[in-house]
Computed example of a mutant assay.
Amino acid sequence: MTTTAHIGTGEQPWFVIHSQSDVYQYTPRIHGVSQIYRFQAGEHSDATFAIPDGCVDIMFDCTEQSPSAKICGSTVCAQNAKLKQGHHYFGVRFMPGMILKSFDISTKELISQRLNLFDFVQDKTSLLEQLVAPQDFSTQAQIIEQYLIHDTIVAPSSKTQTVIEAIIQHSGNIQVAQIEQLTGISKRTMQRLFSDEIGLSPKAFCRIVRCQSAIRTINQTSDLRLIELANDLGFSDQPHFMREFKKLISSTPCDYQKQILKSSYASRIHTR
Rank of each mutant, 00 (worst) to 15 (best):
S68Y: 12
Q146E: 15
I143V: 07
L148G: 04
S112F: 11
I111Q: 05
K84Y: 11
A78L: 02
S106F: 02
L127D: 13
A69N: 04
K82A: 15
Q85D: 05
L100Q: 13
E109T: 07
N116R: 14
Q85F: 06
T75I: 11
S102L: 04
Y89A: 12
A78G: 11
E109V: 07
I143G: 11
A81F: 13
S126L: 14
V92W: 05
T160M: 14
S158N: 09
K108M: 05
H88W: 13
V132T: 08
F137C: 03
D104I: 00
L131Y: 05
I144Y: 00
S158C: 09
I149H: 01
Q79V: 15
F90C: 02
R93T: 14
Q79E: 11
F120Q: 01
L127C: 01
K82M: 12
T75W: 02
Q122A: 14
Q146V: 04
Y89R: 00
L115I: 14
I143E: 06
H150C: 06
I71C: 04
Q79C: 11
C77S: 15
I143N: 09
Q130V: 13
H88A: 00
Q130C: 10
S126E: 15
H88Q: 12
Q140L: 06
I111G: 09
Q130G: 09
A69S: 10
P134Q: 08
I71T: 08
S68F: 13
D119Q: 14
V154N: 00
A133C: 13
S112I: 03
C72P: 02
I144K: 08
T107W: 00
H150K: 15
Q161M: 07
Q146T: 10
L83C: 08
I153M: 00
Q135N: 12
Q140G: 10
